[in-house]
Simulated scan of single mutants.
Amino acid sequence: MPQPLSRRSVLALGAAGLATLAAPARAQDFAPGLLYAVGQKFDKSFNEGAFTGAERFKEATGIAYRDYLPASTAQFEQAVAALLRRGVTDLALIGYYYAAPLASLAPKHPAVRFTLVDAVVEAPNVQSVTFKEQEGAFLVGMLAAMASRTGTVGFIGALDIPLIRKFIAGFQQGARHARPDIGLLVNFVGTTPAAFNDPTTGAEVAKAQFQRGADVVFAGAGVSNFGIFAAAKDAGRFAIGVDSNQNHLYPGTILTSMLKRVDLAVERAFGEGRSGAWTPGSRALGLAERGVDYALDDNNRALVTPAMRDRLEEARAAIIQGHIRVRDAA
C-alpha cells in the first residue's frame, strides 16, 4: 500500500517542479535546424562556416540538428517545410536571398524561431544577424596594399549587390589608408546568385585583373573563389580569401582570409534557443564583437611581416575605439 507523503516530501516535490519550469527547454523540446545557402555544403567558405558552428553546438550539448542543402533559391519553401516536418523549432537560414521569402513565411509559423544570417527581416519570430564586413575588409585592404609591388590591387565579387558593396567599401578604404596612391580594380563574376558557384569565370576575371597590373586580389565570390585562387597561383600573384580561413587551400598564394564568423552566429542562435535566451531583432557583428577578422596561421605567417601585423593591429584598435570610422557602401 502506498505510503502518504510527508510535509517535507511535498515541499521537495514542489521545489523540483518550480525548478523544472525555470530551467531551459529540455533537448526533446528543442530541435535546431540549418538551411544552407545554395551551393556546396563543404565550400571552405560560408556554408562550411555555418556547418562548423552547428557541429560545435552538437559536440558541446549532444543535441543533433537537422540540415538541408537546396539546389536553388526556388526550393526555399520546400526546404523549410521539410525541416519543420522533422520537428525543427529553431531554424538558422544562411543567405541574403532568403530575406524576401522568409518575410512572407515567418508569420505562418509563429512558434518557430528563425535566425536569418546576412540580411534583415523584421518579425516577432525572426532574429537577423548581419556583419560589419567593411571592418574586416578594411584590414585585408591594408594588407593587400602593403604587400603589393605593382601598386595595384583588385577586388572580385560574385555580383553587384549591397552586401558585396560593403566588402568593396572597406577594402578600398583600408588599401588607401595604408597606401594613398594605391590603384584599385573592381570586377564581378556575374549578375545572378549563380555567380557564387562559377570558378571558371572567376578564374577568367582574375586573369584579366592580373593583366591590368593587379598583383593582389581579394576574392569575395563564394565557390568561384577556387578559380580565382588557382589563377593567382598560376600567375605568381596573391589572393585573399573570404568568410572562412582559406589560407590552407594555396599556401604561399593566399595572403590572408577575411573571416566572417558565420559559425559563431549559428552556434549562438542554437545556444540561445536551447536556453530560452533567444530574442527577435537585429544584431551586427564587427571587429569589436569578433564577428570579422583576418586570418594568420602557419600557411601565411611568412607573408605577413611583423611591421605589417603591427599596422593591422593598430588599425583594429582604432576601429574598435571609434578613431577610424569605416564607411559601408551607403
Rank of each mutant, 00 (worst) to 15 (best):
40 Q>H: 05
91 L>Q: 07
275 S>V: 05
203 A>L: 04
41 K>E: 13
27 A>Q: 09
165 R>V: 10
90 D>S: 15
301 R>Q: 13
185 L>K: 11
95 G>H: 06
34 L>K: 05
74 A>I: 10
272 E>D: 15
136 G>P: 11
249 L>T: 08
149 R>H: 15
131 F>M: 11
14 G>T: 10
151 G>K: 06
234 D>I: 10
163 L>Y: 11
240 I>L: 04
25 A>L: 13
233 K>P: 01
207 K>G: 04
231 A>F: 07
264 L>E: 05
144 A>W: 01
289 E>P: 06
19 A>M: 12
267 E>N: 14
39 G>A: 01
222 G>P: 04
108 K>H: 09
303 L>Y: 03
182 I>E: 02
229 F>E: 06
290 R>V: 10
240 I>V: 07
260 K>Y: 08
193 P>R: 08
96 Y>L: 13
107 P>W: 09
150 T>I: 06
44 K>A: 08
304 V>N: 02
288 A>M: 05
301 R>S: 13
168 I>P: 00
206 A>D: 01
134 Q>S: 08
183 G>L: 03
199 P>E: 12
56 R>N: 09
60 A>C: 10
318 A>S: 11
21 L>C: 03
85 R>V: 09
239 A>K: 03
176 R>F: 02
241 G>H: 08
103 A>I: 09
330 A>K: 11
117 V>N: 01
30 F>C: 07
262 V>Y: 02
137 A>W: 00
230 A>W: 02
8 R>C: 00
261 R>I: 00
115 T>C: 08
230 A>K: 15
197 N>F: 08
330 A>I: 07
236 G>Y: 15
49 G>C: 05
255 L>Y: 04
78 Q>P: 02
185 L>N: 13
160 D>V: 07
183 G>E: 02
295 A>M: 14
321 Q>C: 00
214 A>H: 03
191 T>D: 14
17 G>N: 02
61 T>K: 11
10 V>K: 14
34 L>H: 05
124 P>W: 12
192 T>N: 07
46 F>Y: 14
257 S>R: 10
139 L>A: 12
27 A>C: 09
55 E>D: 12
158 A>K: 02
78 Q>L: 15
325 R>T: 06
203 A>S: 13
7 R>G: 00
287 L>H: 15
288 A>C: 03
153 V>N: 01
12 A>R: 14
209 Q>F: 08
108 K>V: 09
209 Q>K: 02
60 A>F: 07
241 G>I: 06
125 N>Y: 11
113 R>G: 02
169 A>D: 09
36 Y>T: 04
318 A>L: 09
95 G>Q: 01
264 L>C: 00
42 F>T: 09
237 R>S: 05
73 T>E: 15
226 F>R: 14
166 K>A: 13
100 A>L: 15
282 S>F: 11
36 Y>S: 05
200 T>Q: 12
111 A>S: 14
241 G>V: 06
63 I>S: 14
311 R>K: 15
119 A>V: 03
169 A>G: 11
